[in-house]
Design a protein around this nucleic acid. Structure first.
Ligand SMILES: [Mn+2]
Ligand SMILES: [Mn+2]
Ligand SMILES: [Zn+2]
Ligand SMILES: [Zn+2]
Lengths: 169, 169
DNA sequence: GCCTAGATGATAATTATTACCATCCGATAC
DNA sequence: GTATCGGATGGTAATAATTATCATCTAGGC
């Protein structure tokens, strides 16, 4: 198994393609195509550093000095919902502590943030501290598996059912 | 490669062993052994749910009604520093967005939070959506590699050098 | 062009975390 | 055991990130 940092080289072409599709994707998702949304997705696609909302805000502001920080927060969230962006981790709202020092991994429910330990036999070997990661010296690693826990899955499907009934009325 | 949720079964024995070593570990790290620290590490070792500071606070409060939430925050941070606890992810201070929808992984500098994309050929196969994860339905996954970036490594070693010189004066 | 649901900007509110500082107490030396 | 002192704690203020609220605006359908 080989491991390497993805170069920023071909990112321009990718961004261009994504921008071309973006307006349609919005309409498919039932969203209006606003100048703010265009500016925000453009800034996000131009960035390779996994920016925070504040960073996107600063970038977008140069062309749209009237944009509000709240709009940037809202829009980034919306983009994640329609699958045009993602978060690096969904565990960003509060620090979660772990007393288990043994190397292991985690499943995280995307809805209720429940976390359970996961063991993956063999994954320890995938990386070692000598791994080739230009510019970084690895110290540790852990896989985050995004998932839906059973109780959230149940709640979600119940809600969908209620929604449909509501819609039919 | 096999993948499964770690059972909570043997956690009791582990916790007991860690508690036995804890006082010595504190002294080794130059920390006083206070009732608050004992209560907090005990609560953390008893938990299997990767609690937030607030949750530990609630648990500890039952026996130490006078403990302060600030102490819990501080102590959990301290425990991480001496290696008696860890965070599930260190990217919890603000949401980091990613416009790259292709499945990939991340190196994160533990000091400056710089994030770069990483490709690991072959890791896609490790998990698939049918993976056996009792109670969870997997949706996606991504490896977080904790690391120290070159510029932080330089700064850190410079600081260490300055510190030593200072100490010699 | 007109209408309306949804989007935005400005700002207040909320939540998590850290800073501050007076007081306290665990560890060390006597 | 007692004195001493630097680090630890509690209470609270301050900060930072995010979300809520609401009046106003506008994209998209007619
Ligand atoms: Mn864990
Ligand atoms: Mn990425
Ligand atoms: Zn859940
Ligand atoms: Zn760094």
């Amino acid at each position: 198994m080989e491991l390497q940092i993805i170069s920023e080289g071909r990112r321009g072409a990718y961004a261009k393609r994504r921008m071309a599709e973006f307006a349609d994707r919005c309409r498919q998702g039932g969203l209006a195509v606003t100048p703010q949304r265009l500016a925000i997705i453009e800034a996000l696609l131009a960035a390779t550093d996994h920016p925070r909302a504040e960073t996107i805000f600063a970038a977008v502001r140069k062309l749209h000095p009237h944009i509000s920080l709240a709009t940037v927060h809202r829009t980034l969230e919306t983009l994640c919902q329609i699958g045009e962006a993602r978060k690096v981790t969904m565990l960003h709202d509060s620090a979660r502590y772990d007393g288990n020092l043994a190397p292991h991994h985690h499943v995280v429910c995307v809805r209720c943030r429940r976390i359970r330990d996961v063991e993956i036999s063999g994954l320890e070997r995938v990386i070692d501290s000598n791994a080739e990661l230009k510019g970084f010296r690895p110290l540790g690693w852990s896989l985050e598996i995004q998932a839906l826990c059973d109780s959230c899955r149940k709640e979600a499907s119940d809600a969908r059912r209620r929604g449909r009934r509501q819609a039919l009325k």
